[in-house]
Design a protein around this nucleic acid. Sequence first.
DNA 1: GAGCACTGC
Length: 693
Amino acid sequence: MDSSVKRRQVNKTEKLRFEDVKEEQSNVVSALYNPRKALSLSQQRALLPAAKRRGDVLKALEKHRSLVVMGSTGSGKTTQIPQFLMEAGWCDGDRAVLVTEPRRVAAVAAAERVAAEVGSTVGEEVGVAIRFDNRTSTKTRLVFSTEGTALRSMMSNPLLSRYSVVMVDEAHERSVTCDLLLGLLKKVQQRRSDLRIIVCSATINADEFVTFLGEDQTAIVNIEGKSYPVDVSYLKSPCKDYLEESLNIVVDIHRNSKPSSGSILIFLSSSEECEELTSRVTETLGRHVVAVPLYASLPYDQQIEALEPAPPNRRKVVAATNVAETSLSIDGVAFVVDTLHAKLKSFSSQEHVSSLSLVPISKASATQRAGRAGRTRPGQCFRCCTVSDFSQLSETTPPEIQRVSLNGAILQLKSFGVDNIMNFQFPSAPPVEVVAQALEELYNLGAIDDDGILTDDIGMRMAEIPLEPDYARCLVASEAFGCTEEVSEIFGMVQSSTLLISASASRERRLFEAVREPYAVAEGDLLTYLNMFRAYKSNGYSSSWCSSKRFNGKGFKQARRIAHNLKKYVDRKKSDSSLQKERLDTRIRRALCTGLFHKAAFVSPNGSYTSLLSSLSFNHVPLRMHPTSVLFDRYPKCVVYAEAVETANKYMRNITVVEATWLVDVAPALYENKRKRALMELEEGHEKLSGRP
DNA sequence: GAGCACTGC
């Protein structure tokens, strides 16, 4: 055995068991590529671990208002529990059962599977309701939906009156939407004692849901899968470079076991690391292995390649990001190498700056990652840290609601009539200062009044629009300025922006700029997007035109669909004739100013930018134009930006040139008084700047 | 002159 293997201490005290998911599709891709034929559907159903718990689930719901189901994906709970409920009469009369999933593919896959099992097709007894794909009818009794669509459907049906049971699947992932949904469901249950709530969660998080739903009225059912053991080993001494260490481990595994013993999956934190490790593994082990990267922004055909089984007599090595932890599963993995790191989003509410930082993962995540080795056979997991370092990791990842901007979440709660946010029972309370900041910004946007109540003309409408509050405010403002069409198209493009340029071109900076250059305008990135969309439109929305310009047809198609959807929320006839004297591009930029004024910045003599809201604080950090902006190197005096990100510096992205006076027009309370002096100082600064070469 | 985990309405 290689010396570096001996260096590692194999710790057999920690044996994990994970379910066999052969019987169930946990994602669409494997469903498409591994159609199963051998067993009949009813035979397969009977073999699922969930079948053994049928009686327990139904009994629990007779006696309790809520149920927490423990067990990870693959036990059959997603597809079987809804059918148990239907068979037991929970869908009799006009009643129905709602099941929510965090991701679209999961909702569609579950609906298709269940429809097949009941001998029907999606849209009849079993339906799916996700954005841009609603296949439900009056006959539908089981509705599979994303969390986002379920929440939105509560806007028109706040008591969910049709549903006897709501099942929140994969609740341990704890998205903001999931937390809002759970909080609202608990409120609905206070009004509707007949409503049953089922929360499905990984074992480690089950307790917190029981506490949240009320211990005295919540039952617990554990659905264990058929499982294979996973041996977990740790390093004897800490490693300095986890990339280097993971390469060594891969080499050890490869040299000490046959290729047929299974594929190796390495968890890394970024696409860049995945690419690097892939090429280093190939360099080191040559033709004996097929090493491939796997991350979400990888082109579709390369993702499929990563998920396919290994060719005969060669070992497959997949270097993946978090996408392989929950969204995609790879068949035939027997070894997991975990670097125990990930990029996590954090947000500074004061500065509107979000950043992605490299952090150690939680024990819960590490358990989930290890489980990827034991899906179809006994597996091994190698963690790139010592046992004692591992014990220092936090138990679970903080829920998203404690890490992100809450403007959107609070706007939605207000639209559900939750006027006192501080009294709302969140599964996990968000930071008070982030809530306060969100309330202040919603007030400044005109979405809530002095009493914190949603305004009819602005706030109510913003809540209906499927965009972040800032963007939704721009869209509402576009009516008066007579540019609803243009602003809808701009935000369709912004939402799809990462998909717009073909993958090969977007990796090369010069090519990226060349592709966009013919459409670039001096008014900034958002108007450049509009210009691109118009060209697409005047060429008949043609995908071959997209490819001829090295644009990504899929991205433009999505932009078109979102733009089309957004237009339904605005009324182009509402334009204010007194505002129509100005040029169209000016009116568009004024509409954008109306929603984005919190994110305005003024140029400083040294060429950096100062955010107007932080300009009075002593420790403000200057902002820079992101090098991908069409305005890079052009130093316009005053801009608004759609987003700020922090990496090596703080950068503004998706920038629009505006006039400072427009800011005072749209947000007098904010800019006229207390910021006026700062504005003037900045103005003077600019006078000096304009003398520069 | 950058370097971006992942979802979703």
